[in-house]
Write a protein that binds this DNA or RNA. Structure first.
Lengths: 232, 232
DNA sequence: TAGTGGTCTAGACCACCTA
DNA sequence: AGGTGGTCTAGACCACTAA
């Protein structure tokens, strides 16, 4: 056999689901039935079903059976890196400001901290072939191990800045994406003289306990960014 | 015991990784070592390791061992539905056009078909509280089971339109997201009189063999859409 | 009570890697 | 040759569900 037996089971059931022979909320044959059908032991059958469950094809209810799941029609995976997107790569970065400030009330609320706690501000401009393509501003709660070398700060993405000071495995991250007209300040930074739309990406990073660690806004020239996502 | 043993193993190793006690590319103790450490059988240990591998914490190399994976810092999951986003819900939809056309060369290329094959066009306007918020245009290769009832077409999302004619499990989908200024046509449709940015979302749907089934562009008023994504 | 999935064991053989 | 992970077995006991 080229394939291990559990993969044969997986492929067979996937095929039955994809072809419509098994429809959402239909029952998959019981583990014992599959054992007999394939002449396999129960652990082997269960390994196959575990893979199907992990891939989102089925779910199991103790005492009842395994059933075909309704597919998630709206789910996509996106890889976001403020320095690289599907139509552009930042080849140069300029540090506009690195500072320690007291947050105003809005920022303090965003970071769930108080206005007398120090916050690091990092403002950068991203360039491609000498032209400014994005304006980036980050606010970080200080913690040990933060990069403070300018060369590092110029090149680091948001998660990278934080992952120096803690294991990146425990980070929770959120994105918000929207379109907006530039204000005067951003127009100046990005050399925008005529009408041009901005793509704005907000990033929030939390620790394991969902406490905010950092907040970031990146304003991309609309003609220099395209984000891509895909299912599976 | 409240937790099954394999979950204890999972939590222990996750904790060691999150705390930095085990770093990326470090070796996880071998299966036999874990068997002894927890007094468990090998299958139980392997079940724990399989979960860690599935969650992206470790990977295994036959003959060598299991190792801590570098976390994916840039990965996000986004749920996209042209009718619903994090700041707005479409409460009404108007069908502008349902038609069968011969594609021009650009569209034929996009759908990897020829200019003498029929293509369905569906153009819609989305409203919120009586105001137009998005202009939506879809091109579909015809196949059996397509919805052709107007009421269905008004309310269906792109994947829903296609999933009537085939199992949604076999679909591959892609998104592209960018910002753009509206042209005259879109300005009219969306009642835009002053400067307003558009968020444009392109959707592509493919069948199992990666052959295109449909292509869709949705132009959102920038003030009526915010897409959200998150890690894990 | 019979059937279901969830957990777990104590073996086995294999292919692979390192020394 | 000895250790590693990958596959597989033939049992076991449990909690849950349904008739």
């Amino acid at each position: 056999m080229i394939n291990p037996m559990y993969l044969t089971i997986v492929e067979d059931i996937k095929q039955k689901i994809s072809s419509g022979q098994l429809k959402p909320s239909d029952a998959v044959p019981s583990e014992n039935a599959l054992c007999k059908e394939y002449g396999a032991s129960r652990m082997t059958v269960r390994k196959g079903l575990a893979i199907l469950a992990n891939d989102g094809y089925i779910y199991s209810i103790p005492g009842k059976g395994s059933f075909v799941r309704k597919p998630e029609l709206n789910k996509y995976t996106i890889y976001y890196d403020e320095m690289n997107n599907s139509i552009n790569t930042v080849d140069q970065s300029r540090l506009l400001e690195v500072n320690i400030i007291m947050p105003d009330e809005k920022l303090a609320g965003e970071l769930q901290t108080t206005i007398n706690k120090n916050v690091i501000v990092i403002r950068r401009l991203f360039y491609t072939e000498g032209k400014p393509v994005a304006y980036d501003i980050k606010y970080l709660l200080y913690s040990k191990g933060m990069p403070i070398v300018e060369k590092e700060l110029e090149q680091a993405t948001f998660p990278e800045m934080v992952s120096g000071s803690m294991s990146a495995f425990s980070l929770k991250k959120e994105l918000a994406i929207y379109a907006q007209m530039p204000d005067k300040e951003v127009k100046q930074y990005l050399n925008i003289y005529d009408e041009l739309a901005l793509l704005v990406v907000e990033q929030r990073i939390y620790n394991e306990e969902k406490k905010p660690i950092g907040f970031c806004m990146t304003y991309f020239r609309g003609d220099y960014i395209k984000l891509k996502g895909s299912s599976d």
